Simulated scan of single mutants.
Amino acid sequence: MISQRTTLLSALLLTFTFAATAAPLTKDEYKAAKEEISVKYKAAKKACSAHTSNAKDICIEEAKGDEKVARAELQAKYEPSAKHTNEILVVKAKAAHEVAKEKCDDQTGNAKDVCKKEANAAYTAAMAEAKLKEKTSENDKKAAEKITDAKSTAMDKNASAQKSANTDVRDANYKTAIEKCDAFAGDVKNNCIADAKQRFGK
């Protein structure tokens, strides 16, 4: 059962990565895929009629689980988000748990009790992994927002510093221009000063 748990967690991680990077579906693609899932579910459930007793129950649970997982994956592709991606992990964990519990009914006594405990342990581990992924995603998002805010603040401060520096340079150049005007007299000096004021926005 430990190997099954490891396999389940690995599958969930792969699902999380794939769903996070897959391109969104169009509305028509979404509708078509949704219909296909329904058709496959009905066919799978109908096929369970070939089984009897607990084998039939297991078959039905597997069909239900496959449908729920497929719908969760489809929703994540149609509306990509951390929430929908995480929902895939949750749905997979629940579906696997239901099937595992049903399989335990093939056993009796202590073996059945152990089987259920192992199924519950695998479910707990899978749900913990899903919760971890959700929290990690939230933390990454918050960190990204802080980085964005920090960059924005830095850009504002840099712009302010640049503006201040430009003002200092302009004022210094203006004073230099005015000083040069002192070499003249009368209208020439006045024109020189007027020109300096116009050039430096004074």
Rank of each mutant, 00 (worst) to 15 (best):
A125F: 02
A144S: 13
K42M: 00
A172K: 15
I147N: 01
N190L: 09
E87D: 12
R170Q: 08
D105C: 09
E36Q: 12
V99T: 01
K64P: 00
T7E: 15
E98G: 02
S137W: 10
Y174Q: 02
K146C: 01
D171C: 06
R199E: 10
F184G: 00
A33Q: 08
G109M: 03
H51N: 11
E36P: 00
K83D: 11
T85W: 14
A183D: 13
T26D: 08
N139D: 10
V90H: 04
F184K: 15
A70N: 07
T85R: 11
A143I: 08
T148G: 03
K64L: 12
K83I: 14
V169S: 14
A55I: 03
L9P: 02
D149Y: 02
P80Y: 05
T17F: 06
K141P: 01
V69A: 13
K142R: 07
T124M: 09
D106F: 14
A121D: 14
Y123M: 07
E145A: 12
C181Y: 08
I193R: 09
H97Y: 14
T15P: 01
S152D: 12
S160H: 10
F16N: 04
K92L: 04
K112W: 07
N54V: 14
E36C: 05
K34R: 12
R5F: 00
G201Q: 11
K68A: 15
D28E: 15
C59S: 03
A11H: 13
A93N: 00
E134S: 15
A20I: 06
I147V: 11
K101V: 05
A159C: 10
N54C: 03
E129F: 14
S164K: 11
N166V: 10
N54F: 13
I2E: 12
R199N: 15
E73D: 12
A119W: 02
D106K: 11
N173D: 10
A172C: 09
V114E: 09
A43C: 03
E138D: 08
N110M: 09
K92T: 11
Y123V: 06
A93P: 02
N120F: 04
Q198H: 09
E87I: 04
A121H: 03
L9Q: 13
K27Q: 11
K83F: 15
A76H: 08
A183I: 04
G65H: 00
K142A: 10
R5G: 03
E98N: 14
T148Q: 14
D171E: 09
Y78A: 10
M127K: 10
K83Q: 13
K157N: 06
K77T: 05
V39S: 01
R170Y: 06
D140Y: 15
K116H: 02
D182R: 08
D105W: 04
L14A: 13
N54Y: 09
R71D: 05
D105F: 03
N110P: 02
C104P: 00
P24H: 05
M127A: 07
S3A: 15
F200G: 07
Y78L: 08
K46L: 09
